[in-house]
Design a protein around this nucleic acid. Structure first.
Lengths: 366, 366
DNA sequence: TTGTATGCGTTATCAC
DNA sequence: GTGATAACGCATACAA
């Protein structure tokens, strides 16, 4: 909180209900019983109206509805859920909401779950097992009907135990937590990307990605390795960097890889945060793309368009994934009978832009 | 949901409690009364232990605690809040969580409110008055203890009425909803930016920003205009574009402005989404920055570093703002006595990078 | 120090 | 069709 100023403005004599806005935030909410008294009806009737029960005379219903509106009645979900044993919250546990992938997914997801009458509660693990546990615990306390979770690499036993008590939907990453999943086909996407580079004639391809402890990190690496081997090439150990997904790590790894002795002619990046760092390093090293190096990044398509040249990008359909997760959850919550588990696999696209080309003799060989 | 494949995998005979993981998600949660029966104690005693009441024999407390742990007891917040009349949720209403500013703020905020035992519920308005109302209603139903809100430009009367019943904290934007605010000094930031351009010798400065219906959009524009006038310059009407904050709008506005007859030598952008579009347009038009045009953007510092040259950027301390909001909310929720309203004003920094320079005769005059 | 009993706001089960 | 009334899971005033 470096540069900030805090001004305390006393509200002075604010006893009476003055001020056109700023009404009493402490005024007790109106309850069903209030409406009942005011209309000289029973709480049962009011409740029925509010729940659209047909068993109430239309004129009475109308009277109740208008009165509820004018009095600004807002149902108490806590009491409602408690009594009716229904669950109105849905949890969404992500590693980091700053990650555009998750923020887009969360946006779509929130919108769609609200459409089915639920409220999304966002929880953030920071990929930290302890924070993750706390977050899950908090969701459990809120009695979420379901939780959509992108599990951290090393989830604790405690977290798993909590999840065992909820209906869970794995999102983007898998860790054997559920039979319901919304994923995208990372392996196929990276196979496609590798093939693209191979087709251009690259022989020396490097990969910077995230730790293979998390499912999609693993899939990405495997996709690249698989395609290379299928073509009789090798993904050499010196051309692989597996790191935590931060901009800084990507920057450092690229710096190191691209100023080392064994220069690749193409570089494939397997994480959006890493991609940003890699791009920065490439820019600072003054490497000409694609003449000296072909580059394929992952994730966000936005800034990739600002780089010169525009970056060829692997992009997953985050919005659709979030939407899909919301719909799946809705279907799980509607029918309490055990549904057959569903696995939704989305296709990640390879956006061909200007950062890949045939290797030239300008390539930065030593 | 263009390219996706849905696989239905039947769970087959999954009747018995088999499967090491995937335990019964439908098992009823253990309640206080369960613990009480199993330990042959009263529910009052259990409750006291779980609330750290000192009025219970330490050995009993220990016995209860361990038993609760082994049984995997998770308190029911709904019941707890209902009975104790405490509020454990905090709402955070943002226009768009894809906006890095809000996602960073939400992250920090979620972390800090959870530290004080609360759970953040994220709500998204999409700057749409109707969605905003629904979101607020949903938060009201969840009986949030407070709501941190970045109001949409044209909030409905209904929304205002709802907010009147809650304790609200305005975030980043103001609309006369509360006396508690966490803002940043947009005006000062844009004065500083304008001064920087004027000091470099620019005479013809353009501004692309958001509609002045929203408070900070207004402040930004006013800051620029104020500083220019103080220096005897004019922010001409033809050099102003006020738009919705989308990448596309920024792109289009910049295209238009920078290929028109009355070319500015410097361009100031007042929104992060607009900034991306402007940058893309500048790049596509092949305008040399800063030789032909000095450019100052707003918001995200990350991709601004990838542009060539790196972009001079006005950046607000989103993380600190989120943290600050969380702390303010915590202090509001802890003491129910009417606190003096607090206004926190943070300083937005001007990061001088490579996109601004003196105007040259290379400047794109007609 | 512990237990009994009441109520939070709502829905659901009965009667009428 | 409508109205009493019990119960959801928990905290708490009061009794013991």
């Amino acid at each position: 909180m470096s540069a900030s100023s805090v001004t305390s403005e006393s509200l002075s004599g604010n006893a009476g209900s003055n001020g056109p806005m700023h009404s009493d935030a402490s005024a007790a909410p109106v309850r069903i019983v209030d409406l009942a008294n005011e209309l000289d009806l029973s709480i049962a009737t009011i409740s029925r109206v509010l729940n659209d029960s047909p068993a109430v005379r239309p004129e009475v219903a109308e009277r109740v509805r208008t009165h509820a509106l004018t009095r600004g009645y807002v149902a108490n979900r806590l009491a409602r859920s408690l009594r009716s044993r229904t669950r109105s919250f849905v949890g969404f546990l992500v590693p980091a909401i700053e990650n555009l992938a998750y923020s887009i997914a969360a946006d779509a997801c929130a919108q769609y779950v609200s459409r089915s009458g639920h409220q999304l509660i966002l929880a953030i693990s920071g990929d930290d097992p302890e924070l993750e546990f706390n977050a899950l615990r908090s969701l459990a306390e809120a009695r979420v009907g379901a939780v959509i979770v992108a599990p951290s690499p090393s989830m604790t036993a405690g977290s798993r135990k909590l999840l065992a008590g909820m209906s869970v939907l794995e999102f983007n990453r898998t860790a054997g937590l559920s039979k319901n999943m919304v994923l995208c086909d990372e392996r196929a996407a990276f196979i496609e990307a590798a093939r693209h580079l191979l087709d251009l004639g690259h022989e020396s391809i490097a990969y910077i990605g995230t730790t293979d402890a998390v499912s999609n990190g693993r899939e990405r690496l495997e996709g690249v390795r698989e395609e290379l081997e299928r073509r009789g090439k090798q993904l050499r150990q010196t051309h692989i960097r597996l790191l935590p997904p931060t901009e800084g790590d990507g920057y450092q790894a690229a710096q190191e890889l691209l100023s080392g002795p064994d220069l690749p002619t193409a570089l494939l990046v397997g994480s959006s945060s890493l991609s940003m760092g890699v791009a920065r390093a490439v820019r600072e090293l003054g490497i000409k793309v694609p003449e000296e190096l072909s580059l394929i990044v992952y994730g966000d398509s936005q800034w990739g368009q600002l780089f010169s040249p525009q970056l060829t990008t692997i992009m997953a359909p985050y919005r659709e994934m979030g939407e899909s997760a919301a719909n799946l959850v809705a279907s799980i919550l509607s029918k309490d009978e055990k549904e057959p588990a569903q696995v939704v696999r989305m296709h990640a696209e390879l956006l061909l832009r200007g950062s890949t080309a045939q290797p030239t003799n300008m390539s930065r060989r030593t």
